[in-house]
Design a protein around this nucleic acid. Structure first.
Lengths: 215, 215
DNA sequence: GCCGCTGTTTCCCTAAGGTGCAATAGCGGA
DNA sequence: TCCGCTATTGCACCTTAGGGAAACAGCGGC
């Protein structure tokens, strides 16, 4: 409902924990949604990631564990930050969780403030991710507007190649390269090669043709 | 002595642990150096970081703890990967260690192979860091060769500004900008603006003059 | 005071980038 | 078959980038 507000997804098999955490989160002014298992969360997935969100996941759960959920999220490229909570965790699990990018790992019992602090950090991380994704998508969309030939020309332009070199490489005349190049600059909405290079590097735009492996 | 070999620094207050870990490391074909305390390691510092190295640190030690050592290393910009080992660690310490970038955290007793695997990972990470640092230093050195004016002109060039715009901005004639620009390209050893942009972005070269905060 | 480095400028010329206009050609869809 | 998109090219013209040659000026060091 509230589009500007953050949402915390709580995944825990213990109903009383879900209730108390939800209450805590809501009292702090955020939305809370809870799930009784990793599977339940995975089935409910709302992919977009438009709004800052994060997960608070119990380590031990019947079925998929918290670590399994984290791995699955990574596999699905779901970049929501994860906070683990656990009553009796061991070091190896903690290490694995952190290595896989968990924001933190809290052991029950913990101070409510401690969780809220972790949530704040996770949401901030998520906001940055959203902003970064938005930028990347924007650039990718522009690249998507290019024709194959234009992409090809662009891949040469961002290496600093001269029009005549590009022309020779593609077996066409320089005038044609200029036409493609102009369209690239227009569609990518840049006015200088410097900007074009930055956009392409930001999304790791790769050539396809350039790296001549043979010769 | 052996310049091509990796070295593992072992920091543990227990002499028998130091002996056994050193033996393990040497048997695996790497050099080992051990220290009885964090302080001892910090005093022995050989700064360069030319060769792949990593640290294996005990969490609990008299004086500075393993975590303290890790923090101090971070403060000193010593980027050697750290592997923690501990007999009786708790989750918060593990989380803190991992958040601060530890490669992993092993609890004693652990399989020798497990430590060797972690060391291999840490050394690989170190190699990449060394390579990245070398690249950055190389670029930074070139920027260091530039005069103030040349750096100023470069900061404008990498934004895609035209010579005439730069000239107007600096209150000089276009021909002068061309002179500086040519020296920049020469000293930075690039032949295109595209390459120059990449070098500058790689080291996060910032302007100094550009972001006019006032007006 | 002379020398070297840096920054600056003027005159002039070539090469490369960028555009407008016009035309040809292949291809897939209405 | 005509239309629209994409790719291509030729011609002419203007703007930028890049240099060569020569010179002047401030500054710190010998």
């Amino acid at each position: 409902m509230n589009p500007a507000v953050a949402t915390v997804y709580i995944v825990d098999d213990d109903a009383s924990v879900r209730r108390s955490l939800s209450r805590l989160v809501r009292q702090a002014g955020m939305d809370a949604r809870d799930f009784a298992s990793a599977e339940e969360y995975l089935l409910s997935r709302e992919k977009p990631l438009q709004q800052p969100t994060c997960l608070v996941v119990d380590l031990q759960m019947p079925g998929l564990s918290g670590l399994d959920l984290q791995s699955e999220l990574a596999r699905r490229l779901n970049k929501r930050p994860v906070i683990f909570i656990s009553g009796n965790a061991d070091i190896p699990s903690t290490v694995r969780a952190m290595r896989q990018g968990a924001v933190t790992f809290l052991t029950k019992p913990f101070e409510p403030a401690e969780l809220l602090r972790a949530i704040a950090e996770a949401l901030e991380k998520c906001r940055k991710q959203i902003a970064a994704d938005a930028g990347m998508n924007d650039i990718a969309a522009r690249i998507g507007e290019l024709t194959e030939r234009e992409r090809e020309v662009m891949s040469w332009v961002i290496t600093g190649a001269l029009n005549k070199q590009i022309a020779a490489e593609l077996g066409i005349v320089e005038r044609t390269v200029k036409v493609h190049r102009a369209r690239v600059m227009e569609k990518m909405r840049v006015v200088s090669v410097a900007e074009l290079v930055r956009l392409c590097d930001a999304v790791a735009f790769a050539p396809a043709v350039r790296p001549q492996p043979g010769s």
